[in-house]
């Protein structure tokens, strides 16, 4: 279980990184935290001839709360984003989901952007980017910067829109509009494992606290995170009078999971219905609480 040989590159600036990636083309791979790539290299499921280590590119180690959301640079580790209280205020779903990604020790090294590019359909962060309508910024040497929306970023299991020679420089997670809540619920065989099923939910209420929009992104039920808009089933009612069983049924009917050694397709379908309902209810409650706070503060 040792990687095969590769040429190791250790650029120090973004420009240098892009030049090396351009030179390596399809034979190059970016090394960020290595928490998914190094297992693949150790098992020789991947054997790139050039490895471009971005760990010395300090300019990529950024997390910033901007107008309208949170921008996470390619070298920001899970642990740093999870700890940031300004991120938690601007986009609480990030911290909620990060707590479910692997174990604290893995999160000390793994990066948020790496998790997105790795594009595991069971991973939490791709579902978060999807339900929030976030985007990933891609750059290449002597070429234009592309801002790819989540809906176009995840293209298949372990496949993303990143092309050879490109670097994902950052990801943008929009913050929530007013009267909006979010939640992430999942079931894994052991805490820290990839989830058998899970759902990231975002619910917005109108002035009268009726559900204006409700969306979930489900993990482990398709080649990419599966985004479902269930606003119609919520029928513009307040959370307390929504027919939640119908919502869960709608979710179950619209997904097509596969079975594997961890869970049968039927069990995954059932779990996803339960978890989507749970996440949506929590998100709706959060939205209502936020509304209450808003009112009490005048």
């Amino acid at each position: 279980m040792k990687p095969s040989a590769f040429d190791y590159h250790a650029p120090r600036s973004l420009g240098e990184t892009l030049e090396i990636l351009a030179g390596a083309g399809p034979h190059g791979k970016v090394l960020a935290g290595g928490q998914s790539l190094i297992p693949l290299l150790n098992m020789r499921l991947a054997a790139p001839s050039h490895l471009v280590d971005i760990n010395r590119v300090a300019a990529l180690d950024t997390v910033s709360v901007e107008e309208g959301g949170v921008r996470v640079g390619a070298l920001a580790r899970h642990a740093a984003v999870e700890r940031s209280s300004s991120v938690a205020r601007a986009q609480p779903l990030l911290r909620a989901a990060l707590k479910l990604v692997a174990h604290p020790v893995i999160r000390n090294r793994g990066t948020v952007v790496g998790s997105l590019v790795h594009a595991d359909p069971s991973a939490e962060l791709p579902a978060v980017l999807t339900v929030l309508d976030g985007s990933v910024r891609l750059a290449r040497h002597a070429g234009p910067v592309r801002e790819v929306p989540a809906a176009a970023f995840f293209t298949g299991p372990l496949e993303s829109a990143v092309e050879p020679g490109e670097l994902a420089v950052s990801a943008f997670f929009p913050s929530l509009p007013p009267r909006t809540g979010s939640a992430f619920c999942e079931v894994a065989r052991r805490h820290g494992d990839y989830a058998m099923a899970g759902a990231a939910a975002v619910v917005s209420l109108d002035e009268d606290l009726r559900i204006a929009s409700a969306r979930v992104a489900c993990v482990s039920v398709g080649p990419v995170p599966v985004l479902l808009d269930v606003s119609e089933v919520c029928a513009h009612r307040p959370a307390a009078s929504v027919d939640w069983a119908a919502v869960a049924r709608d979710v179950r009917d619209r997904i097509d999971p596969e079975g594997d050694i961890h869970a049968t397709a039927a069990y995954r379908r059932h779990l996803t219905g339960v978890l989507a309902e749970r996440a949506l209810r929590i998100a709706a409650q959060e939205a209502a609480d936020e509304r209450a706070e808003e009112t009490s503060h005048g």
């Binding site: 279980m1 190791y8 090394l31 290595g34 928490q35 190094i38 297992p39 150790n42 098992m43 280590d53 642990a79 174990h103 604290p104 020790v105 893995i106 000390n108 090294r109």
Partner: peptide, 22 residues
């Protein structure tokens, strides 16, 4: 491959997997 944790060491004080670090 990062699962067992036996190889955990402290890198600048933070625990990491030494088998998942070059």
């Amino acid at each position: 491959h990062g699962v067992c944790g036996c190889c955990t060491v402290l890198l600048d004080g933070a625990p990491v997997r030494s088998c998942l670090t070059f």
